[in-house]
Amino acid sequence: MSGAGNMTGRATVDRAPRKSAWPARLDLAQSLTGLLLAAFLAVHLLLDSAILFGSDAADFVAHFFEGRLFFGSSHPWIVSAAAVVILVLVVIHAALALRKFPHAHRDYAEMSGHVRALNHTDTRLWWWQAATGFALFFLVAAHLFVVITQPDAIGADPSTRRVVEQGAWALYLIFLPVVLVHAAVGVYRLSVKWGVPPLVDSAHARRRRMVMWIVVIAYLVLGLASLATYLGRGLSG
């Protein structure tokens, strides 16, 4: 392998260069950031649904994250700081995921034609994950900008104002299904990618996808119910 190097007359070591560790690291980092973000989302949406149990429950969650339980008073910067951490994770994850996107028209045409012709569930799921991932570049940016700049606007009444008067319901209505599909398909595909647990046969994969869709629907119902509750509160004044 070093033969070509010797031909140029430059000084060469008589050993093939070792392959970089970076592809391994980046592959792991994409999976880990994705898994962390999915876990965060699962908890985030559960806590959002506190409003279903009344405004006190929602306020309790808000006060908890503003540190009132620990410091005795509200520190909204904690919320901002947490949102910045999430933003950093999203940026890393997005940058790594970009490696897998179609880069040129040829890639796009080949892949979209392939998805249509093959009519194969897992291939189609990848396509949807790429599409939702692309949409999330913008949706996450809009959402996190608000959270970072207005960290004190959480809790029952501030959230109601944001959802109804500031029109955030429109963002959330698109954001919710997009992020749910992206995260659930992502976690399913992680299990296939790393073989944890190993994918034995196509019946096995079907069962795993069934669980994935149940999770998506459960969270979608929960999220829409929370959103409807905020809308109801806001519209009834």
Binding site: S20, P23, D122
Partner: peptide, 17 residues
């Protein structure tokens, strides 16, 4: 050990299916 090798696989499972 690179993106043209095992780390490039996008886990579409078409191969196995």
């Amino acid at each position: 050990g690179d993106d043209e090798g095992v780390f490039g696989c996008m886990s579409l499972v078409g191969c196995q299916d």
